[in-house]
Amino acid sequence: MNFSEIDAGPVWLSLQLAGATVILLLIAGTPLAWWLAHTRSRWRTCTEALVALPLVLPPTVLGFYLLIAFGPHGWLGGPVKAVTGSALSFTFWGLVLASTLYSLPFVVQPLQNAFETVGRAPLEAAWTLGASRWDAFFTVASPMALRGYVTAAVLGFAHTLGEFGVVLMVGGNIPGQTKVVSIDIYDRVETLDFASAHWLSAGLLLFSFVVLVFVYTVNRRLPIRI
């Protein structure tokens, strides 16, 4: 067994995928979580159920539908191919999009909880002090929801790092493009390269553990407790 046998490519790709996914999710998840936390609309329950769906669905089911949608003839892949020349399936950005859906609840739910905990009262106070809605969001609601953001970012990142089924369905196994570390481990086991599989698995295990310890530590030390 030799450490140099381990290809850093899939590890690096996994980190890029998780990073891009989390950034996208924080941007898209914030308004969604905000809406869920404050709306009295009758669509709220349905939307909450949709957001939670990836928690219970077999990743292969989600992956199957996404594969069809992302393909050259899919409702999303088709138009994308017409513009860029290639469909979304079996590409890095297809994976990012799939991961965004797959990890959605891990980001939206902590954010929604955080916004609900902040509540309306401090916002009303900010408005009466002359802050506009946006101003109050950025200077009062977001900083008060900081713990929620840390939790959301880390859970989203770690969960994307560990995804397997959706990636396999949508991305396949293209080195440098869609071959992420979880797929790489599966490959190694298939080819009976248990030593490398050990290294990669242990690395992922340790990384996940360290990340979670970090989150809990940071969360405990953050100044804002509501």
Partner: peptide, 20 residues
């Protein structure tokens, strides 16, 4: 006129200070 455009000072039952 939205709240933030009214020159109104409001003191609530609870202080509602910003904890951060």
């Amino acid at each position: 006129l939205p709240v933030e455009q009214r020159a109104v000072g409001m003191v609530f039952q609870e202080p509602r200070l910003f904890p951060h």
